[in-house]
């Protein structure tokens, strides 16, 4: 009776095949994502200008970056924009979901209407809202024609208010998605819990406040994570809607990075701003992904 060497070649090949199949994807991700991240981090410590160069300057780019009013303005803008965007999207999405969940006639027609902007490019959204908000031909002009002569809506041209137009367009694009997430969460709640609460005498308001909304916690968390990372990555919409202006009123870190790297030829500073963006997103995404992947083991 033979003992060793029984493992035939094909069986051994089968053993390695899964790893072989996975390796091209893995290699691509390792090089193009993690390798590139390391490279950019390295660049952020160098004196790169128009092209990468490898003179080590330590933290100089970071200290320059934080002294630039352009950068701090971008961060402030991002703070305002992200806060309002996340809050309004969540509130509107939750309201739409709860209302749609009340045995609404025509729900099947309303849902796709709320959600379709998600299928559009931010460039299209930006183009549509750019003209709709333009005082010359948009909503303000229309109101004047309809006889409301004193109506003013020139936020998009106003340094103090332009950032809010960004919020409006972004909310328009993604709140339907948040609605869908909450609606799925609502439909996943055990209806017997709802019945029990009603038998316990909870009013509708209390039913939602005390029972339903706490049960939607996972949906809140997912919505927050998705919206936060979208906010930090926002680039296309700014370009299409305001181009960062008027002045720097709607500059965000994403547009800052792009202009410093590719038009102002300050690659070292651009790289350091990208690193800060990555760190911010990682702080939100890594714990979330970690928890998600752990749960399912």
């Amino acid at each position: 009776m033979t003992r060793q060497g029984e493992t035939d070649f094909r069986t051994r090949l089968q053993h390695w095949l899964p790893k072989v199949v996975l390796s091209p994807s893995l290699a691509m991700v390792l090089v193009f994502v993690y390798g590139f991240i390391l490279f950019t981090i390295y660049l952020s410590f160098t004196d790169s200008r128009i092209l990468p160069s490898y003179g080590w300057v330590g933290l100089e780019n970071y200290s320059k970056l934080w002294r630039l009013s352009h950068w701090t303005t971008s961060l402030t803008n991002l703070g305002i924009y992200a806060f309002l965007y996340i809050t309004i999207c969540t509130a509107l999405g939750l309201a739409l979901a709860i209302f749609l969940d009340q045995k609404i006639r025509g729900e099947g027609a309303l849902r796709p209407i709320y959600l379709y902007p998600m299928a559009l490019s931010f460039i299209v959204t930006g183009t549509a809202w750019k003209w709709f908000l333009d005082p010359g031909i948009g909503i303000e002009h229309t109101m004047h024609l309809w006889g409301w002569e004193s109506f003013r809506f020139g936020w998009i041209k106003d340094r103090d208010f332009a950032i809010y137009t960004l919020v409006i367009a972004a909310v328009w694009q993604t709140s339907g998605f948040v609605m869908a997430m909450f609606l799925a969460g609502l439909r996943g709640i055990d209806s017997e819990i709802m019945k029990a609460a009603q038998i316990d005498g909870a009013s509708n308001f209390n039913l939602y406040r005390r029972i339903v909304i706490p049960l939607l916690r996972p949906a809140f968390l997912s919505a927050f994570v998705i919206l936060a990372h979208l906010a930090i990555k926002s680039y296309d919409l700014v370009i299409a809607l305001t181009g960062g202006g008027p002045g720097r009123a709607t500059e965000l870190p994403a547009t800052f990075m792009y202009s410093y790297t590719f038009t102002r030829n300050q690659m070292g500073i651009g790289a350091s701003s990208a690193v800060i963006m990555l760190m911010t997103i990682a702080a939100i995404m890594v714990p979330y992904l970690y928890a998600e992947l752990r749960e399912r083991k």
């Binding site: 994807s25 893995l26 991700v29 390792l30 193009f32 994502v33 993690y34 590139f36 991240i37 490279f39 950019t40 660049l43 990468p52 990372h229 930090i232 990555k233 680039y235 870190p253 994403a254 990075m257 792009y258 790297t261 690659m267 651009g270 790289a271 701003s273 990208a274 690193v275 963006m277 990555l278 997103i281 990682a282 995404m285 890594v286 992904l289 992947l293």
Partner: peptide, 15 residues
């Protein structure tokens, strides 16, 4: 590692 790559700000890989 693969999943996280969906969420990175792509500015970090542009250069």
């Amino acid at each position: 590692l693969m999943l996280f790559s969906c969420f990175i700000p792509f500015q970090i890989v542009l250069i």
